[in-house]
Design a protein around this nucleic acid. Structure first.
Length: 315
DNA sequence: AACGGGACCAACCGCCGGGTC
DNA sequence: CGACCCGGCGGTTGGTCCCGT
C-alpha cells in the first residue's frame, strides 16, 4: 500500500540538535498539556524537525530522569543477564534499568560489553563459550559447519573448549553476570516470557536504605526505560502520558490554569538515591528562566546539587 | 604537528504492531 | 476487514573525539 513517510522530509532539519532546539522542545513539552501527538510537536514547538526526531531526542537525551555516564558494573551485569534471556530486545532490557535508554544500552553493548565478552571467550550472541582458538583444521570440516548458517549450526560445541580455558571463562563470566555461567544453551531454551524474568537489580536493594520505600509513583516520561518502579511491562506509559497527579493537585492545577507540572527531581539523577526536598506540585513552568535552569539541571549529568538549587528557585 | 584509525554515541532509517476509522 | 496513522523498536550510519604513530 505504500506507507507514507513519517513526516514531510523536505525542509526539515537533520543531524545534531542545537541547544536552542533542545530548549524549544523542552519548553514545549513542559508547558504543553501533553495532549498532542509527536507529529504535531515540532510544528507547535516551532521546530524544523520531524516528530520522530523530537521523540527520539526527548527519550534518549532530554528526558529528566535519564542517567548519564557509563553503565555501572551492576548495570552491565544486568544487561548481560537480560541479554542472555531476551536477546537484542533492547527496550525490554532498558525497562529493567531505570534511567537508561534502549539506545544507550544498545550502544554500550556494541562498544563495551560485546568486546568484554569476546575477550573472555564468550560469544556475545549466544552467551556460550567461543570455540577454542582456531587450531588449524581440515578445510572441509569448517565448511560443513558454516553451511546453512542457522544459529544452531554456528554454535560451538561446549565440549570442544579446552578444560582450563573453560574454567577461566566460567569464572570470568560468572563475575560479569553475577551468577554462574549458563549451564544451558540459550538456543536450547525457549525465550523466556518477560513476566518470568526475575531481575535482582529491580528488587528492593535498589532503594537506598535511608529513603522511604513508599511506592511513590515515579514520574514516568519514558517509553520503555523508566518502569523501574515495578519492572512491569504493563506499567509503561506512553511518552506523552504525564505523571499521575492526585485529585487535589489536579484541582489546584486547574484552578491555577496550569497545564502541566514538573515532577520532583528524578531519583535516578541522584547519586545517593535520596531526593532533595520535593518541589510544591503547583509549580508553573512558563518562565523562560525556569526552562534555562531546567536545561542546565537535566544536562548536568549526575545529580548536580547546584543546578538543582537553581531550579528549585522556581518552585 | 599532522595524520590515520579506532572508539564512541547521537541520530537516522525502515519495518512492525497496535489502534482507529 | 482493510487502510491508514502513529509510536516503538532494532539495526545502522555518520560525526566527533581520542590515541598512537
Amino acid at each position: 500500500m505504500g506507507r507514507q513517510p513519517c513526516c514531510d522530509k523536505v525542509g526539515l532539519k537533520k543531524g545534531p540538535w542545537t541547544a536552542e532546539e533542545d530548549q524549544k522542545l523542552i519548553s514545549f513539552l513542559l508547558v504543553s498539556n501533553g495532549h498532542c501527538c509527536w507529529r504535531a510537536v515540532p510544528k507547535l514547538a516551532g521546530l524544523l524537525r520531524c516528530g520522530k526526531s523530537c521523540r527520539l531526542r526527548w527519550t534518549n537525551y532530554l528526558r529528566p530522569d535519564l542517567k548519564r555516564g557509563l553503565l555501572s558494573e551492576a548495570e552491565e551485569n544486568t544487561v548481560v543477564e537480560l541479554h542472555a534471556q531476551l536477546g537484542n530486545r533492547w527496550s525490554k532490557i532498558a525497562s529493567h534499568l531505570p534511567g537508561r535508554t534502549d539506545n544507550e544500552i544498545k550502544n554500550h553493548w556494541n562498544t563495551h560489553i560485546k568486546k568484554k565478552l569476546k575477550k573472555m571467550g564468550i560469544d556475545p550472541l549466544t552467551h556460550k563459550p567461543l570455540p577454542a582458538p582456531p587450531p588449524p583444521r581440515p578445510q572441509h570440516e569448517e565448511h560443513q559447519s558454516t553451511v546453512g548458517e542457522s544459529p544452531e549450526a554456528q554454535l560451538p560445541a561446549t565440549e570442544q573448549k579446552q578444560p582450563e580455558m573453560a574454567e577461566r571463562q566460567d569464572e570470568e563470566y560468572s563475575l560479569l553476570r553475577g551468577s554462574s555461567p549458563p549451564d544451558f544453551c540459550t538456543d536450547e531454551v525457549p525465550m523466556m516470557h518477560p513476566d518470568e524474568i526475575i531481575v535482582p537489580s529491580c528488587e528492593p536493594p535498589a532503594q537506598p536504605p535511608t529513603c522511604t520505600a513508599a511506592p511513590t509513583p515515579t514520574p514516568s516520561y519514558s517509553t520503555s526505560s523508566s518502569s523501574s518502579a515495578s519492572c512491569d511491562d504493563d506499567a509503561l506509559l506512553p511518552i506523552l502520558e504525564w505523571p499521575d497527579v492526585d485529585v487535589d493537585t489536579m484541582c489546584l492545577m486547574a484552578g491555577l490554569g496550569v497545564d502541566y507540572m514538573i515532577p520532583a527531581a528524578p531519583s535516578s539523577l541522584l547519586s545517593d538515591g535520596c531526593l532533595p526536598p520535593p518541589p510544591p506540585p503547583e509549580a508553573v513552568y512558563e518562565d523562560h528562566m525556569f526552562n534555562s535552569a531546567y536545561v542546565e539541571y537535566q544536562s548536568s549529568g549526575a545529580f548536580d546539587q547546584e543546578a538543582w538549587n537553581k531550579l528549585e528557585l522556581f518552585y
